[in-house]
Amino acid sequence: MSGRQREQPLRGRLTGLALIAPALVLLGAIYLWPMLGLGRMAFNETGSTGAMAPALSLATFRSLFEDPFTLETTWNSVWLSFVATLLALVLAYPLALFLHRTQSRFRSLLTVLAVAPMLVSGVVRVFGWLALLGDRGLINAALMGSGLTAQPTRLVYNYFGVTLGLAESLMPYMILALLAGFGRLDRACEEAAATLGAPPWRVFLRVTLPLTVPAIVLGFLLCFVLAMSAYITPKLLGGGRVFLLATEIFDHAITNANWPAAAALALYTLVLVLLLVAAYAALTRRAEA
């Protein structure tokens, strides 16, 4: 801190404290305290009747890890999040690169358009996917109308539909992350590569892609975390047939009213995400070096 601050008179300090106190109190009450409560809850027990008993035991965690279903949902969650994030990346990358490079007069409008879905409620977009992918949706209507298929193809209420919907909901975040990272991408470097004899695809592989690796890593991490904890999309597009950590946490908490189990699973998910992120970050750092 600057010397200016050290010399600050008592009155200035009091003003500062008064400015910040409401936020401190509020977030202490609605963020810190509930999170501590969540941590504590995971160590309570659930009796055979389903009633919660205050305790300090690992029983909830034990039954969580003994249940093979936990491993299955974990795998579902990680794999689905990975595929959805990858899909979002593959789709968002060309769009972000286009927005970065275009000299169109409508560039800022196009950028807004690319992230505008973020401003539309997630429920609305899920409904849109239902209308597109449902048995009587646009795609099935087109498939059957053209005589390609006779029966509706199952595109939704399964892992495919959830992955697609999730990828689309992640794309605006991915685009923003990529665009922020593309600032490092100097057009002159790509041009230099071309004048040195590299055809466009080689320029992409040897210059564009390596220079955007940091942006890709960042976007991927951000979206993967978002995907792991996404609830609305899997809930509505999964139609109860897609089992993920997020849906299980909600079911434990609301449907089964088994709070210790919900809390334990939530902590487990949190740790899992942190570990995966740390591992991925370490891996890419090694690869970059």
């Binding site: 100097d186 470097c189 041009e191 230099a192 004048t195 220079l211």
Partner: peptide
């Protein structure tokens, strides 16, 4: 450009970082 065989030294140098 990639088949012209012209050496171009950019004002910003454009070295590959």
């Amino acid at each position: 450009a990639h088949r012209r065989n012209m050496g171009y030294v950019f004002q910003s140098y454009a070295l590959f970082p």
